[in-house]
Amino acid sequence: MAKKSKGIQHPGYEKAPMDRRDFLRRAALVGGIGGAASYLAMAPENWPLSMRDKTGLLSKPVHLPFQLRSFQVEKKAGSADIGVGTEGNPIEKLRRAIDAIGGIEHFIKPGDIVLVKPNVAFDRSPLLGATSNPELLEHLIRMLLVDCRAQEVRVADNPIESPPDCFEKSKIRLATEVGGGRVYLPDSNSFEMLNTPGAKLIENWWFFNRPFTNVDKVIGLAPVKDHNLCHASMGMKNWYGLLGGRRNQFHQDIHGIVSDLSIMIKPTFTIIDGTNVLMENGPTGGDPSNVRKGETVLAGTDPVALDAYAFEHLLQRGRDYPEYLFQAEAKGSGKLDWEGRVKEIRG
């Protein structure tokens, strides 16, 4: 106890005593905390545990990019690059087209997790040709689950309009669930930064990655649509629906972006759904008169040749191919010349 001072004090006043040990303990505490705090705040940036950010750039948010592997499989001997199915109902056409490129069991192994990417960009009913044919999708899922014994089939797209609504009205959700697949909607946190080496516009860009977790095979299911700016939206343009971020800027270089998409993702194969071809007023359509009832379903492993063939035969626009096909060929995504690589199974 410290000595009580003898000054004039109120009798009720009691001094808080502090002895030497107490003082030292408190001083050490203040010194310790203060020292540690000063170290954290002021030590040079490269020292361990330093929190200092001299330039203000260290605290910039970082999005670590990931890379996507190729989902392609070895070509089966004797099969074509492009398969055409023209006979029977749409389901038989689909089977014939896939058989011509080697059969679905060649591509999908039992236990695979398969992602199917249809085009669900707009809130339209299926017959308007702005979205993929749900009948084909449902049957494709059945083939994957029953014939190939795939473990899981996922269906994903990032539409322009409200995702749940687009999946609902285009009947894609119903087809997926009836077929036995699972829909992935682009909700919050679905996007991650994808690094695509060699891409001009999307070397690092937001990518709809959630459905890609642990995926073994990827199949595109694209409608064929008229498109004012890039002339045609087909198999390659379909992958646009996996982009996030401010993707509407890319119209400033539409051919650049579509050819970038062809190196961003290397699908196992692509199906081009020519059952409802949107001949004009694309890519939204909106009137049944814009749609030509097609008789063809295509499947192909070479995205460039496949789009070229579809441009010529489904959209019936001759050989004045869109610029992005040449750019995609230059980027090594495939060979434009489809002659001699097409097979049609009949009967």
Binding site: Q252, T284, N290
Partner: peptide, 14 residues
Amino acid sequence: PCVVCEEVCPVSPK
């Protein structure tokens, strides 16, 4: 070049 507006215009004819 741009015309995103034309692409997304939903009516037919646009």
